[in-house]
């Protein structure tokens, strides 16, 4: 463990807290992409299969929190707050994301075992899972401030993993090229958003696309 990874994981937890807080206080999931949330649940379920055969207090606890909170968000979106979700603006074609991640996972896993292929699939899928959400923000041209905080915290999580990987590359004999490439792609996808978030939201203005 190092400070970058810990900070990244904390941002991930914060993003989930912001999302659930936004939905339960406003009793609405407007502005949140159901498709992105469904992809995240798929990411966590396929990546954390090792819960069944490995245990480490920190990691196992976090994995259960990520799967549980993700399932809870989907429950809120399909149950109590379903009337506030507008499928007409959540139209990103996720089949290409799932298909692309599946092809890359089958071609380049570290090992050709079901668990490793699913792990690789989850890494690639996570790198693009935010696209339906960003697409939705782009379509509507604006987002509630709390939604932008959520997207920022989620982006900061993987961005902070990058210095973690650099640190680990310098201090150990192993590295994980697959996670690094996917993590960099993931961070790049957020970069436009980070820029607008920094120039608008942090200076007290509404998040509106130019």
């Amino acid at each position: 463990m190092n400070i970058f990874r810990l900070a990244g994981d904390l941002f991930h937890l914060i993003s989930i807290f912001i999302l659930i807080h936004k939905m339960t206080t406003s009793k609405s999931c407007s502005g949140i992409s159901f498709k992105s949330q469904a992809l995240y649940l798929l990411v966590y379920v396929t990546r954390y299969l090792d819960l069944f055969w490995t245990f480490a207090l920190y990691n196992s606890t976090m994995k259960i929190i990520f799967i549980g909170s993700s399932a809870y968000v989907l429950h809120l979106m399909t149950g109590p707050f379903k009337p506030t979700h507008d499928p007409n603006i959540d139209t990103f074609k996720v089949r290409y994301l799932i298909g692309g991640a599946a092809i890359l996972a089958l071609l380049f896993p570290y090992k050709w075992t079901p668990a490793e292929v699913l792990w690789t699939f989850s890494i690639w899928l996570e790198s693009v899972a935010i696209l339906p959400q960003l697409f939705m923000v782009q379509r509507t041209g604006a987002a509630e401030t709390i939604t932008t905080h959520y997207i920022f915290a989620l982006g900061a999580y993987r961005a902070l993993y990058i210095p973690n990987w650099i640190y680990r590359y310098l201090t150990s004999t192993f590295w994980d090229p697959l996670s690094i490439i996917a993590g960099v792609i993931q961070t790049v996808l957020y970069s436009d958003f980070f820029y607008i978030y920094y120039t608008k939201v942090l200076q007290g203005r509404k998040f509106e696309l130019p």
Partner: peptide, 10 residues
């Protein structure tokens, strides 16, 4: 350096 999956990350 060996390219392997870092098993201890989330």
């Amino acid at each position: 350096k060996e390219a392997v999956k870092l098993h201890d990350e989330l």
